[in-house]
């Protein structure tokens, strides 16, 4: 009787340990989530945003295409599509140069995901929309001007 009781207690302790391990395992993704690149997203200038992303002097490239309207009537919703034919693209970042905080999004693309991102962004005023592409350890960039008639950031 006593031996059984011991066993039950032991297995209960074992199960507890597993639960703790699972909880620890589950905590990891949340911690990774907390690694949001604050310095880059809160940067007030394009140069600071690029520094925050770890990008220095990207090379201009014709292999990146930005599809965005020439004139956006509503700055709150500007469709932007970035595609690149550069092989091994691992990241596409979108920067609206004259926004208060220029960095809009940073998209990490594991292998298998094509060099393509389509989204909608807010723009405070007419400015260049810049795409920064990282491929094989090198960075490339291109920009397209979007004229905004009604700003979409605040006021």
């Amino acid at each position: 009787m006593n031996a059984l009781r011991r066993n039950v207690l032991k297995s209960a302790a074992g199960a507890g340990a597993v639960a703790v391990a699972v909880a620890a395992g589950l905590l990891k993704p949340t911690q990774a989530m907390a690694a949001w690149n604050k310095s880059a997203f809160e940067a007030k200038s394009v140069a600071d945003a690029m520094n925050g992303l770890g990008v220095t002097s990207p090379a201009d490239s014709k292999d990146i295409t930005i599809k965005a309207p020439d004139i956006a009537e509503n700055g709150a919703v500007v469709p932007v599509e970035v595609s690149t034919s550069i092989a091994g693209t691992t990241r596409i970042a979108i920067i609206a140069e004259k926004n208060g905080t220029p960095l809009v999004g940073n998209f990490n693309l594991p292998s298998g995901t094509e060099g393509f991102i389509s989204t909608r962004i807010k723009m405070g005023q007419t400015s260049l929309v810049r795409a920064v592409v990282t491929a094989g350890g090198k960075t490339y960039t291109t920009a397209k001007e979007v004229k905004v008639t009604i700003g979409g950031c605040g006021g």
């Binding site: 949001w36 690149n37 997203f41 709150a76 919703v77 500007v78 609206a96 926004n99 905080t101 960095l103 809009v104 999004g105 940073n106 998209f107 990490n108 693309l109 594991p110 298998g112 995901t113 989204t119 909608r120 962004i121 807010k122 723009m123 979409g152 950031c153």
Partner: peptide, 12 residues
Amino acid sequence: VLNAEMGGAVSK
């Protein structure tokens, strides 16, 4: 297949 970070400048 995708791991993206966004700022407040992405549309509603």
